[in-house]
């Protein structure tokens, strides 16, 4: 009680998410055609470690503490590339699933970080329905892991709570894994 979201909030998220997906479909060709900045070097689809570093950043990947002289806002290699539309719209469905799998595997053994939330949301937004069986079990694994992490939160004020609730909500209610719903 107090940790899980209201039904009304969940319904609003599903509705917003559905609109976001429609907009992606509408704008996909545009973003796919945009040139990437020179500093954006996307890993190959099967480069699992490369994708983890790309999305989460080297600081998190290597578990290093940024020094004060680092400007965290600028070095995407260190802090991770955000899921820009020009990046995610380039990914095939197979790549979306593969990156999703890499990140969910990473999350299976580590704590939640903001970069992870942004990428999971972006990848889920690009994941086409109907889901392939592998994608099904993948996103179920994600929702279960989110529930597990949430169950161990000590306070409702924990800033990861809303992100965990959002993931559970989208998997359970948008992707219709109703048995996992709050």
């Amino acid at each position: 009680v107090g940790f899980s979201p209201s039904l009304r909030w969940q319904q609003q998220q599903v509705s917003n998410f559905s609109e976001v997906r429609q907009s992606i479909n509408k704008h996909r060709q545009h973003w796919k055609a945009q040139a990437l900045d020179d500093n954006v070097i996307m890993p190959k689809p099967d480069d699992e470690e490369g994708w983890k570093k790309f999305c989460l950043g080297e600081n998190i990947y290597y578990n290093t503490t940024p020094t004060q002289s680092d400007d965290p806002g600028l070095d995407y290699v260190k802090v991770g590339f955000p899921p820009f539309l020009s990046i995610v719209c380039r990914l095939s469905q197979a790549s979306i699933s593969a990156v999703l799998e890499n990140l969910i595997n990473w999350f299976g053994e580590r704590e939640f970080v903001p970069q992870l939330g942004r990428w999971l949301y972006a990848l889920l937004a690009c994941l086409e329905k109907p889901l392939l069986p592998e994608a099904h079990s993948l996103i179920r694994q994600l929702a279960r892991r989110c529930s597990e992490v949430r169950a161990n939160l000590e306070t409702k004020e924990d800033e990861t709570l809303s992100a965990l609730n959002l993931m559970i909500c989208l998997v359970a209610r948008y992707f219709e894994q109703n048995d996992l719903a709050d």
Binding site: S162, A163, N165
Partner: peptide
């Protein structure tokens, strides 16, 4: 404003990040 439609405004390169941040913030405010 300035002739920029809401659609092009929202759908810049960071649209997904904004949508995520907005969703997360809405729970804190709910």
């Amino acid at each position: 404003g300035m002739g920029k439609s809401e659609d092009s405004d929202i759908w810049d390169d960071t649209a997904l990040i904004k949508a995520y941040d907005k969703a997360v913030a809405s729970f804190k405010n709910s």
